[in-house]
Design a protein around this nucleic acid. Sequence first.
DNA 1: GTCTATACGCTGATAGAC
DNA 2: GTCTATCAGCGTATAGAC
Lengths: 197, 197
Amino acid sequence: MPNTTSEAREQVLNVAEQLFMERGYSAVRLKDIADALNIKQASLYYHFPQGKEELYVEVLRHSLRRHAAGIQAALAQAPAGDWLAQLEAVASWLLSQPPVDKMSTVQHDLPEIHPETVHMLDEESFAALFVPILGIFAAAQASGQIELEDPDLVAGMFLGMINNLHMVKAEWNPRSKHQMAEMLIRLLARGLEPRPA
Amino acid sequence: MPNTTSEAREQVLNVAEQLFMERGYSAVRLKDIADALNIKQASLYYHFPQGKEELYVEVLRHSLRRHAAGIQAALAQAPAGDWLAQLEAVASWLLSQPPVDKMSTVQHDLPEIHPETVHMLDEESFAALFVPILGIFAAAQASGQIELEDPDLVAGMFLGMINNLHMVKAEWNPRSKHQMAEMLIRLLARGLEPRPA
DNA sequence: GTCTATACGCTGATAGAC
DNA sequence: GTCTATCAGCGTATAGAC
């Protein structure tokens, strides 16, 4: 019975995720994925009978599920109420993973995908990525630790900012991505500090 | 004599830029570009005899030249020494243009392009986009208006931040991109404010 | 400058053996 | 689960007329 969880299928998803995320949907050939797995292109159809599009969508869902769990875990491990530590924990998780550029992915690649599917992915990525981040800022604001006009905007910027770090080549900046994330978060924190009227 | 500046060629570049920037190199078919111009696919080879890759590279160079000029113009028009106004002017320019995601473009699409060409584009985008922004921050820092540890990092973040705004769908956030840019810049400015030890 | 016609390689996909 | 064999369709590119 295909289409269920299995060792081999999992491997396909992981390898495919790597490739799709770094090159985008249309630039990745099924042969590339098969080669990376040392199997033949046609063998992929055992796991994903509907072909490339199904594989891609499953990759995205797989990735989003992992991110939802990873971000929750990062938050659980960070001191409750410490929004700065929480942001850093989430950033650290995001940097440990292949890039998940919600927007870039969704807008570059998904024109080629069925619109209903796109909508579903939109909602899943919203729940997995955006909502938890937004929660951090909202809580910090509610407790008066920060002042911000538009939590949605800042949450989106945060995600984008961290994601951009994935693309910074080592030659551009000598620091590690984690160091850069930390500096940017510190900068953000300064900007959000409450201040006397 | 092809390969030179001409009305038709310019049109091709503009239409192709739009498509390449929103879908990425491999997802755009020469037929898509031709259709948008109401000409036939093969006709593109009159202007770009080397084919798709040449067209793409010329699109990028064309775009970078326009950005270099546009950013300079934006800076010239902003009050000298007013780094905030300068950032806003640059942001406004960038938002008026099709996206130029230096990094996303360079890393998604350019695997399929000759490496030497990639290097050249790297340098051109560095000079056209990064250097002017960096200049703003460096000058502001030199004159003591801001305090920042890593100007390169902040300049890169600024570019990425503005570019991300291109992908924010209207349903996500009711504000205009310019409003969002203004808010983000204000936030950044707060974070960079010098403060007493 | 743009067209028609066409060649050709590549890619996604199917069928069926092991 | 993975393989070989095969194919239809698409996308790039070329040749040459207008």
